[in-house]
Design a protein around this nucleic acid. Sequence first.
DNA 1: AATAGAAATGAGAATCTTAATCATCTGAGC
DNA 2: GCTCAGATGATTAAGATTCTCATTTCTATT
Lengths: 141, 141
Amino acid sequence: METSNLKKAGLKVTLPRMKILEILETSETRHLSAEAIYRELLDSGEEIGLATVYRVLTQFEAAGLVCRLHLEGNQAVFELERGGHHDHIVCNQCGRVEEFFDETIERRQRDVAQHHGFAIKDHALVLYGDCVDSACPHRPA
Amino acid sequence: METSNLKKAGLKVTLPRMKILEILETSETRHLSAEAIYRELLDSGEEIGLATVYRVLTQFEAAGLVCRLHLEGNQAVFELERGGHHDHIVCNQCGRVEEFFDETIERRQRDVAQHHGFAIKDHALVLYGDCVDSACPHRPA
DNA sequence: AATAGAAATGAGAATCTTAATCATCTGAGC
DNA sequence: GCTCAGATGATTAAGATTCTCATTTCTATT
């Protein structure tokens, strides 16, 4: 558990923050909603309020420790920032989220923005499709 | 005003639907929130409820008459479907929305998805940056 | 043009996600 | 251990969107 990240971000090392960080680090699902993290906390017997989960996640985002993603659906999901930028593919059937990075797309985005007179600062790219892997529980028979 | 579009979609031709379609067709801003459309209706003296605006826009979306976009910010915006698919660039300063289409990005997205075992169905791509045009009222001096 | 039936509307309530409030509690340094 | 700034939690609030249901409006038919 990297408590040093918290200190670096100017955040006190508290139990809620450590527990939330731990869940983000150890959950096999890398993209978790605030609600999902809250439920995991409850399940492991922690008495941490939902408001704290939202507050802490927002602070983590500001500190660059996590990324907030708005996938289709009503609630945002959070993922631990592991260094490299990447975009996402989401399975319409099973909801599985895969990460990818494509330099061609990245470069092209910069070019397009420039042509339109924009200095690009950020982008949001999410692909939606159907898993054709055996991994997807909903794949067509 | 294309009332035939409504009929084709199996929607009764009613005053609220025609008025909302008219606003989408004639507004100089091509990307409007439900709230913004509602305000335009009120300004032109129409007695149309906000619930109806949301309902009608959702139906229009299902019928393929409009697209719903989730730009950063809390509310979705709607744009009239004019045939061609495109993505968007948004100015962080003035909120201006530009449309673009780039075949290289489109193709690359399909390739990436395929490599990850997905049959891509849809995607959401939004670039965020700062206008460097004289058009942007907030451009750096 | 009057009418009936189905569909659409409007006002407000409800829902859902997220943020704000504020009194109480806790961690870091002394 | 003590102090106090900062953090927490329970609740309330806010904003966007959807739902409910009684009333109204189209469309097709007399």
